[in-house]
């Protein structure tokens, strides 16, 4: 009874986390379309003689959104690359040890990224840092995308770390084919 409650909770947690990664990836995909739309706007603006100020800046923010928000999903799909020359040759506890080490380093660095990304947005707000281009966007607004994306990445790395510890992690994540 206790066990099933635990596994039901785990299952729910799993579902929530996976939805978080996928949802944020879909948001990233929408921003990818945003890049396209912004660049097309500036092309058509020139052709049809209308002017939308700041399309170049908006394309840049959308690109940042596409990159940061997809981080966790890309990790979970095993598409962030790494060198698995050594890890791939190891088995058993040696492999687990090295996986835990590299995941710990990743958790630490992702945490630093997330913390300082939020600090960037917060400081931009404090400093009234406003885009110097024609868009005049207060920069803390698009910078939130960086904070959210790196935070979801941090969650995904912690998730991986816990799965590795419980020996439930799929080892194909980020590994490469061997000859």
């Amino acid at each position: 009874m206790h066990r099933t409650a635990l596994s039901a909770r785990n299952l729910l947690m799993r579902k929530i986390l996976d939805a978080l990664y996928l949802g944020s990836a879909w948001l990233a995909a929408l921003f990818m379309i945003g890049v396209l739309v912004m660049v097309l706007l500036s092309i058509f603006g020139r052709l049809l003689q209308f002017y939308v100020p700041g399309t170049d800046a908006y394309a840049g923010y959308a690109m940042a959104g596409a990159g940061f928000l997809a981080l966790a999903h890309t990790l979970k799909s095993g598409e962030h690359i790494r060198v698995t020359l050594i890890i791939g040759k190891l088995t058993g506890s040696a492999r687990r040890g090295l996986e835990l080490w590299s995941l710990s380093v990743a958790v630490l660095l992702a945490a630093l990224l997330a913390v300082y990304s939020w600090r960037l947005a917060w400081q931009s707000h404090q400093f009234h840092d406003i885009s110097t281009a024609a868009d005049a966007t207060p920069l803390w607004i698009p910078q939130i995308l960086m904070g959210v994306g790196t935070t979801v990445l941090l969650i995904a790395f912690v998730d991986e770390w816990v799965l590795e510890l419980r020996q439930r992690r799929h080892h194909d994540a980020g590994s490469t084919r061997h000859e």
Binding site: S42, R46, Q49, Y51, P53, T55, A133, A134, A136
Partner: peptide, 21 residues
């Protein structure tokens, strides 16, 4: 148009402001 001022000048003289880096 590379700044708010240069795009406003364009509008006032009836030129077509164009964003090019």
């Amino acid at each position: 148009a590379y700044s708010p001022a240069t795009s406003r000048i364009a509008e006032l003289v009836g030129a077509q402001p164009v964003t090019v880096q």
